[in-house]
């Protein structure tokens, strides 16, 4: 398990670095997918099957495709490769380190951080479903509402103004 963790961690970090540093946008996206897949592998390695598989399904299967579509439909991906690096990288470094610090404190402070990795049991899908439908039903419904409105909004924007001057 230990060696699997190191391989996956290396893959994830390499993918993330590639996503930042490749010159071509498509290469960046594919590299990002490697990062996503590595994360899914890490979840699976931690015995969190549901989270890992959903990560694979949603991020590799849907989000990456969405990025690809957005890239190919909005601008010419065949443009001359440009330098993706930003000039004010120190600003980014500051933001990144702050995010890292917050996450580190949160993880260290939580009771999960103290638990041993091997002892965490995988919650069954049934249990996840039950808690979503009972304890967390309000956030779930709110999220559903938000997503529905976003969907309708997207359709309205994509359709554009009605032809023929009808309101």
């Amino acid at each position: 398990m230990q060696s699997a963790f190191y391989i996956l961690a290396l893959l994830t970090i390499a993918g993330a670095l590639g996503a930042m540093n490749f010159k071509r946008l498509v290469h960046c996206v594919l590299s990002l997918v490697v990062c996503f897949a590595g994360l899914a592998g890490l979840y699976l390695n931690l015995n969190a099957q549901f989270a890992g598989l959903v990560q694979l399904l949603v991020y590799v299967g849907a989000v990456a495709i969405l990025v690809v579509f957005a890239m190919l439909l909005t601008r010419n991906a065949e443009d001359a490769p440009q330098n993706a690096g930003s000039t004010d990288w120190y600003l980014g470094l500051g933001v990144a380190s702050m995010v890292f610090l917050i996450l580190a404190f949160a993880v260290q402070g939580s009771e999960l951080g103290a638990a041993e990795t091997g002892k965490l049991s995988d919650p069954s899908v049934k249990a996840i479903g039950k808690s979503l439908m009972t304890t967390y039903v309000l956030p779930l419904e709110a999220m559903a509402l938000l997503l529905t409105s976003a969907l309708i909004g997207a359709v309205v924007i994509a359709k554009g103004p009605e032809e023929g001057g009808k309101p």
Binding site: V54, L56, V60, A62, D122, S124, V125
Partner: peptide, 19 residues
């Protein structure tokens, strides 16, 4: 335990290789 989910997740991963 989540075999069916595994099947769908892995199947979704093949889309990107087609791209």
């Amino acid at each position: 335990k989540n075999g069916l989910l595994f099947f769908f997740a892995v199947g979704a991963a093949s889309e990107l290789s087609i791209f």
